[in-house]
Computed example of a mutant assay.
Amino acid sequence: MPRVSVTLPCYNCEPTLARTLDSLLSQTLEDFEILAVDDGSTDATRTILDEYARRDERLRPMSIEHGGVIKAANTAIAKARAPYIARMDADDEALPERLAAQAALLDSRPDIGLVGCRIRFGGCRESCAGYAHYVDWTNTLLDHEAISLNRFVEFPVPNPSIMYRRECVEHHGSYREGDFPEDYDLLLRWLESGVRAAKVDEELLVWNDPPDRISRNHERYAVEAFYRVKSGYLARWLERHNPRHPEVHILGSGRTTRKRADMLLEHGITFAAYYDVDPNKIGHVVHGVPVRNRDDVPAAGEGFLLSYVGSRGAREEITAFLGARGLVMGRDWLPAA
């Protein structure tokens, strides 16, 4: 039995597939298999897979009728034989130590169910500044506490970088179909169920950012879809951790903030107040909820705060502001944008 099973969904990836396969077949850990699922490609994807499989028996190609990346990924997971299962996308590159380093972390930490790594951004930092900033942010979240407390900001462990124990998918399920990002849903579901996560503190994956990347073009990965799926998980987290449930205080009062925070209302959460620094907003009442000066946020133990301010640099500034007032992330407040 192989030590690691690499699941590789493939769809019309002829231009990048060989580079991805070369990176996997050059790993320092040799005891692995690649479950490459051709999702009904119309280009030379299957031909490339067959050619590589003839040269290296660790590659196990298979084909299915086109059903999308979730079906392809779950097909590969179902065929995996190893105790550790890794995800790889067919337009990225695994650095030579990736599988060895992640498997070693799982070996040494029986309390950890899922591991990631630091990412090397493979796109243009000028034209793709948003993605680059996101990668930089994920690279700061290395231990379980940081990953867990920041899970409602964005996806803290990029999907192509994960490796996990087989029992995680057996106990908590694999990717689900829906109008939401399936990878984010999987991580939120596993964390909610008690799975602990960590990262290898090394760059082990080159995450490329081609213009046709599915996360750029499918409505399932739109910003609002991320807020929609995380609102339910966040509401359940608040029910367990907010002493004043269901009441929360919202940092930010702009239209975008309210639109995204309002998704919590569908889950029974109520708002005590909005807080802002804009004097033109302070003093207003929005749908019965007052807008107050940010300096008037409740003290520690007097109310739970959610920050929905997502502008560049705002998260760091708010963390410093609340910390100076003695508020602790996870106990008194959480970032949600």
Score class of each variant (00 low, 15 high):
Gly268Lys: 07
His249Val: 11
Leu265Met: 08
Ala324His: 14
Gly326Leu: 06
Gly323His: 05
His245Tyr: 15
Tyr233Gly: 03
Asp276Tyr: 03
Leu306Asn: 09
Leu327Cys: 03
Leu327Thr: 06
Met263Val: 09
Gly301Asp: 11
Asp295Ala: 14
Val291Gly: 07
Phe321Val: 05
Leu322Lys: 02
Met329Trp: 06
Arg292Asn: 04
Glu302Ser: 08
Arg258Ala: 04
Leu265Cys: 09
Glu247Arg: 03
Asn242Tyr: 10
Phe304Cys: 02
Ala299Leu: 05
Phe271Glu: 07
Ser253His: 14
Pro279Ile: 00
His245Arg: 09
Asp295Met: 09
Gly232Lys: 01
Lys230Gly: 08
Asp278Tyr: 07
Leu334Arg: 12
Gly310Met: 01
Gly313Cys: 05
Ile269Val: 13
His241Ala: 06
Gly323Ile: 07
Val229Asp: 11
Ala314Phe: 08
Val286Gln: 06
Gly330Cys: 09
Trp333Asn: 10
Arg240Leu: 11
Ala235Trp: 07
Ala300Trp: 08
Gly310Ala: 04
Arg292Lys: 02
Ser231Glu: 09
Tyr233Lys: 01
Gly254Lys: 00
Thr257Tyr: 08
Glu302Val: 05
Ser311Arg: 11
Ser231Pro: 04
Val289Cys: 02
Tyr308Glu: 10
His284Leu: 08
Ser253Gly: 15
Arg240Val: 11
Ser311Trp: 13
Pro243Ser: 06
Gly303Cys: 02
Gly326Glu: 13
Pro243Gly: 07
Met263Arg: 10
Lys259Gln: 15
Val289Phe: 04
Ile318Tyr: 01
Arg258Leu: 03
Pro246Val: 00
Gly232Arg: 01
Phe321Asp: 14
Arg260Glu: 15
Glu302Phe: 03
Ala324Ser: 15
Arg292Ile: 03
Val277Tyr: 07
Lys259Thr: 15
Gly330Trp: 08
Pro279Arg: 00
Thr319Cys: 06
Tyr274Thr: 04
Gly330Val: 10
Lys259Met: 14
Asn293Asp: 15
Glu302Lys: 03
Ile282Ala: 00
Pro298Cys: 09
Met329Arg: 10
Leu265Glu: 15
Leu322Arg: 00
Val291Leu: 05
Leu327Ser: 04
Glu317Thr: 12
His287Gly: 12
Leu265Val: 12
Leu327Gln: 05
Met263Gly: 10
Arg312Ser: 13
Glu316Gly: 07
Phe271Ala: 01
Gly303Glu: 08
Gly326Trp: 04
His284Trp: 07
Gly232Thr: 04
Ile318Gln: 05
Val297Trp: 01
Tyr227Leu: 02
Val309Arg: 01
Gly330Pro: 06
Phe271Gly: 02
Tyr275Leu: 04
Gly330Tyr: 10
Leu264Trp: 14
Asp296Gln: 06
Gly313Arg: 03
Asp278Asn: 13
Pro279Gln: 04
Leu322Ser: 04
Gly252Asp: 11
Trp237Cys: 06
Asn293Lys: 14
His284Asp: 14
Thr257Lys: 01
Ser253Ile: 12
Ala235Arg: 03
Glu302Gly: 06
Val285Gln: 01
Phe304Ile: 00
Thr319Ile: 06
Trp237Leu: 08
Leu238Phe: 00
Glu247Trp: 08
Val286His: 09
Gly310Asp: 12
Asp262Ala: 15
Thr256Met: 06
Ala273Met: 09
Val289Lys: 02
Asn280Tyr: 13
Phe304Met: 00
Arg240Ser: 14
